[in-house]
């Protein structure tokens, strides 16, 4: 089983649209994993149903029992996150600031502190209208641990792919280069970088590729909105060639992207004559490279 991850560095380059179109072409062969857990959008196209929903717990928050607290203040002194403040003669934890490190719990001489497991979100395993399984998640607001939820989504997708005897997992990643992206790269076999023809797109592509290089995963690139700035597109092509990143193709700026999303469809459902050949070729290309 092979795991393909779509990331972009920059947001809004068309990752999810491209992921949905690839899922449409390869629906018989894959399980889809939406790893953009704090702004998951794939479900808006794939229409998940019969979802199996599970709570996801990760990390802890400290809680001070005011009846046991003797207000010695030790917890406040050692907390590096300024998450403990005086409150009605004892102390209390500011949830939003608490990092869940447990240091206060270890040092409290009165055992007045408990560490509470945190429900940081939900993950769902669903059927989709394409017939393939979608594993997705909703991260709680402002939650930490998005990387761990991504890891969970990926491991569930793997289990499903095994039982369904599917050869591929297609994962839609999140923007950036931080913890959720790093978690989506762990264990991946192939990375598809979706960039756009703008100075920001190129700058973000370089940073995310540097991260991919650290993981030593082979990568390929699709340049979206390629006709918006021909100069930058040519710079992107040069960058890809120089860094031995496989150039899968260019997609010109197309209103079909917004139109399809507005109708809850993928690009191919919006205009089959135009998009089916392109994405069939991309999928063929991906399988060949893996």
């Amino acid at each position: 089983m092979k795991e393909i991850v779509i990331i972009s560095g920059k947001g809004g380059t068309g990752k999810s649209s491209i992921c949905a179109a690839l899922a449409y072409v390869a629906k018989e062969e894959l399980v889809v994993a939406d790893c953009d857990v704090d702004a998951a959008d794939l479900h808006l196209i794939l229409n998940p149903k019969n979802s199996e929903v599970q709570d996801f717990y990760s990390g802890v928050l400290a809680e001070i029992d005011p009846d046991k607290c003797i207000a010695c203040g030790l917890c406040q002194q050692i907390c590096r996150f300024a998450a403990i403040e005086p409150h009605e003669k004892t102390y209390r934890v500011i949830d939003l600031e608490c990092e869940g490190c447990g240091y206060c719990y270890y040092v409290c001489p009165q055992d007045a502190i408990t560490l509470i497991d945190q429900n940081v979100g939900k993950f769902l395993i669903s059927d989709t209208r394409y017939g393939c399984t979608l594993v997705h998640a909703h991260l709680g607001i402002g939650a930490d641990n998005s990387g761990k939820l991504v890891a969970k989504v990926k491991s569930e997708a793997k289990t499903r792919a095994k039982t369904e005897q599917k050869a591929y997992i297609l994962a839609d990643g999140s923007p950036g280069i931080g913890c959720p992206v790093i978690a989506s790269l762990a264990g991946a076999d192939y990375v598809i970088l979706v960039t756009e023809s703008s100075k920001s797109g190129l700058s973000d592509l370089k940073r995310v590729q540097e991260l991919v290089t650290k993981f030593q995963i082979p990568s390929a690139c699709i340049v979206n909105k390629a006709d918006i700035n021909p100069g930058v597109t040519s710079d992107i092509h040069k960058y890809l060639a120089k860094n031995k990143i496989h150039h899968m193709g260019d997609i010109p700026y197309a209103e079909d992207f917004h139109k399809a999303i507005a109708m809850g469809r993928c690009l191919i459902e919006e205009n089959e004559t135009r998009w089916l050949p392109i994405f069939s070729e991309y999928w063929h290309d991906i399988k060949e490279k893996i």
Partner: peptide
Amino acid sequence: SPPGTACAMVSAVK
């Protein structure tokens, strides 16, 4: 601010 609604966005916005 950074995109999303996770810890990075909250750190910036709060």
